Computed example of a mutant assay.
Amino acid sequence: MYHFIVNPAARSGLGKETWRELRPLLDQKELPYQVHFTRYQTHATKIAKEITSDGARHTLIVLGGDGTVNEVLNGICHLSQTELGYLPLGSGNDLASGLGLPADPKEALEKILTAPVRPVDIGCIRYNGQSRRFIVSAGLGFDAAVCHQVMVSKLKAIFNLLHLGKLTYAGVALQLLFFLRPGKMTILLDGRKKLALSKVYFAAAMNLPFEGGGFRFCPKADCEDGTLNIIAVAGLPKLVLLLLLPTAFFGLHTHFPGIYTLTCKSAEFISQEELPVHTDGEPVLRQKRIKVCLEKEKLLMKFINK
């Protein structure tokens, strides 16, 4: 049985229309399925929890954006018993880019229905006694501030209508950069290696290469290698950072001073000031300290190439 979790509001209301186009394809194949439409924020989490709470093997296919996948991920009760497929319909689609999935939902559906399942790493962020999973990235600072602002920005709806949703992140980043006040941060890797930085713009843990609508912040991040890739940006004048941003689309920024890339199993980000936090682009309350690590269980993901 396939369980389709559909966000009808994805990409400014295109989710419901896309499902209407996909449903005849499923009926033609005579595949058993149920569809679950999300009605409010975090509803996808509740749906996923209800489906997977019995401990049996289930296949979930998400039609929506990275945020909808993140909600589903945080509702799954047994990662190793759950197969997850993704039909991208968001603004950024960093998960689809990282997994090499087609941007067209129809094409993606054809591929994942026949794709083998592969065990993938799932990240977890811990803060103030709470925890939240992520599959793409989790960050503290400027990148999270951009994600927070995108959620309420009028640019998002405009760019989505023009099928240029990825530009929302770049546009908001340019707006926020001029008001940003970088501060001190300590990064502790695997409880041993300490990195103390000044004038830090942001730090993020990456499970896949892309974030923020196509920025290839950690080109070598691989969700099957059992590690997290860390990026921190610090000590750069704002003008230099502005000039470096376009190079991040191609992963070329890692060659410049002030860009720190590291690999670990777990990390702690300790900031002098409270900063915005995100998981897969979804806002979390501002924090001074977060810990990122990998879940013990791997998720069974349906995709072909990264």
Rank of each mutant, 00 (worst) to 15 (best):
I259Y: 05
I76H: 08
L244G: 10
A221W: 07
L22W: 02
I135K: 01
A196H: 15
V62H: 03
A267Y: 11
C147M: 13
H255C: 05
H58D: 09
T168H: 01
C124G: 01
R57C: 11
H255E: 03
L228D: 04
K194F: 00
E268H: 10
F303D: 06
F179Q: 14
S131M: 07
A108V: 08
G65V: 07
L87R: 05
P257H: 11
F178H: 14
A232G: 09
N305K: 13
L101N: 07
L299S: 04
Q34K: 14
Q34T: 06
A9D: 12
A248Y: 14
P219F: 03
G183Y: 00
L60R: 04
M1L: 05
G214C: 08
F142D: 07
C223Q: 05
E110H: 12
L239N: 02
L174Q: 09
S266C: 09
A96S: 13
F134T: 02
I112M: 04
P237V: 08
G251K: 05
G85E: 06
K291H: 03
A232I: 09
Q81P: 06
V6R: 08
F215H: 05
E268Y: 10
I259R: 06
V120Y: 00
A221P: 10
L25K: 07
L79H: 03
Y260E: 14
Q175W: 09
P219M: 00
V292W: 03
I112H: 02
N128E: 15
V6N: 08
G226M: 13
L242K: 11
K29A: 14
R289C: 08
G251W: 12
I290F: 04
K156R: 15
L113D: 02
K111S: 12
L228V: 13
I47K: 12
I122Y: 01
R57V: 11
G165Q: 03
A96D: 06
R57L: 12
P182G: 08
V35N: 06
F249L: 15
E17T: 13
E71Y: 13
G75H: 04
Q272F: 08
I135G: 02
L155H: 10
P182E: 09
Q130P: 01
V284H: 03
Q81G: 05
K193T: 15
T82Y: 00
E274M: 09
A108Y: 11
C223T: 11
A115R: 01
K16S: 15
G183D: 11
A145W: 12
G13L: 09
F4T: 02
L161S: 13
G226Y: 06
T45W: 04
G75Y: 07
S97P: 01
L189N: 02
G165S: 03
A173N: 03
T42H: 15
L285N: 11
R132W: 01
S91V: 01
T38W: 09
S91M: 10
R216Y: 00
T168L: 00
K193L: 10
K296W: 00
D104I: 00
L73M: 13
F217R: 04
T52L: 13
A204W: 05
D143A: 14
S271A: 15
R192I: 00
P246K: 12
F269Q: 11
A248N: 07
G183Q: 07
K288Y: 07
G281D: 11
Y169T: 02
P102G: 10
D143W: 08
R20H: 10
P105N: 11
K302P: 08
Y33T: 01
L89M: 12
T114E: 15
L174D: 00
T279E: 11
I230W: 11
T227H: 15
C293W: 05
P276L: 07
A44H: 04
N229V: 10
